[in-house]
Amino acid sequence: MPLELAAKHGRTTAPADLGRSPLAIRGLTVSYGEKPAVFSVDATFAPGAMTAIVGPNGAGKSTLLKAALGVVRPLSGRVTCWGRPLARQRGRIAYVPQRASVDWDFPTRVLDVVLMGLYRELGLLRRVGPEQRARAVACLARVGMEGFAERQIGQLSGGQQQRVFLARALAQEADLYLLDEPLAGVDAATEKAIIAVLQALRAEGRTVVAVHHDLATVPDYFDRVFLINTTPVAEGPVAEAFTQANLQAAYGGRLATAQMGAVV
């Protein structure tokens, strides 16, 4: 981690060592059938930074996140969070899955979805009280959705659904936020709102890692980038790692020249 970046976020960590990294992955391989979706990936995400995971379609971006969290089972590899096994640190990690991964006709209201972020804390028996409800409403307010608490989730637009998912993650008050394509198919207002929330999280010293598909906005939104195409291609501050050569290596012939223009 370059020093000026560290200084910017009030941290003096040395180049990300395993013990400090909120998410360190070693030798991770996940196969669907007999084709590895990610192969032998080492990744050490910097604390207090906003990192974009970038790569072509089918490069294993989402799979990397899911395997890091144990949502899909890796064939090999080890994941540590702040130097300890993932299982011990679950309470400090919030995950925002892809919006399309759930059935939005499920009988539940917006507020109930946000309250799901507190299930871990509530356990099986404790009732949802006014304090929890107030916290959930506050999280909705942070994503600009406080007026929608009583709505059925099926009545929301795509961007609103994505904000509700983010609010659920906020309710966990985690230290590490992992987001799978949070900006895919959302309107411009939602994109702005989500990025503002993520940047606020970073300002509080929390770590944000997001799968991101829009190359043009990477330098504006993120301070670090992790390029992957089944195997890791490059990792580092945007200024150093988000180069034409690295992108060419990650995307091969699939990188449109228009996108390249946006990068350079």
Binding site: K66, V71, I93, Y95, V102, F106, T108, M116
Partner: peptide, 11 residues
């Protein structure tokens, strides 16, 4: 039932 991925990520 609603979101197995999120459930698994929560442990």
């Amino acid at each position: 039932a609603f979101d197995p991925g999120y459930a698994a990520a929560g442990g």
